[in-house]
Amino acid sequence: MTKFLGMHEALEVHELLTFKTLCLTKATTMSALAQDEELKAILASDVTTGTEHIKQLQQFLTNREDVQ
């Protein structure tokens, strides 16, 4: 990976980060309202993976060194 993202790439990563943050917020909120245990498990899994995805996207915007 290169050390720097192009302007359009940084904007696209930022859009993805915004979308994933919105998804994480919705999954967290809905998991508190869900009554079905299977649905709660799916939402909990989505929260876990969404959190990891957000961390990875943040690294693209903040980490300027080579990432392998």
Rank of each mutant, 00 (worst) to 15 (best):
L33I: 10
L17Q: 01
A27H: 07
T29H: 10
F19W: 04
A44R: 00
A32I: 11
E37S: 15
A44K: 01
L11P: 01
T18R: 13
T25I: 11
S45A: 13
L43D: 06
L39I: 15
T29S: 11
L11I: 08
T28F: 04
K20R: 09
D36T: 09
T21G: 03
L43E: 07
L33R: 11
I42M: 09
D36C: 01
T28M: 10
A32Q: 13
T29P: 02
A32W: 11
S31V: 02
L24C: 00
L17D: 00
E15H: 11
E15W: 11
V13Y: 09
L39R: 06
L33Q: 15
S45Q: 12
A44H: 05
A41F: 04
K26Y: 11
T25M: 07
A27E: 03
K40D: 04
Q35I: 00
L39E: 03
T18C: 10
D36A: 02
K26H: 08
T25S: 12
L39S: 06
A27M: 00
D36H: 00
T28S: 15
L43N: 07
A44P: 02
E38G: 04
D46P: 07
D36K: 00
A41R: 09
L22F: 14
V13Q: 05
T29E: 15
K20L: 07
F19N: 09
H14Y: 12
V13N: 02
F19T: 14
L16V: 01
L16K: 07
S31Y: 00
D46W: 02
I42A: 08
V13D: 06
A44F: 08
A32G: 15
Q35S: 14
L33P: 07
E12F: 13
T28P: 02
M30K: 03
K40C: 03
E15R: 15
I42N: 08
S31T: 01
K26M: 10
A41C: 04
K26A: 08
L39W: 05
L17P: 03
E12C: 07
A32F: 12
K20P: 01
A34Q: 02
V13M: 05
D46N: 13
K40E: 07
H14G: 09
K26L: 14
A44Q: 00
H14C: 04
S31H: 07
E12W: 12
E12A: 14
E37I: 08
D36W: 10
E37M: 13
E38H: 12
S45W: 01
Q35F: 04
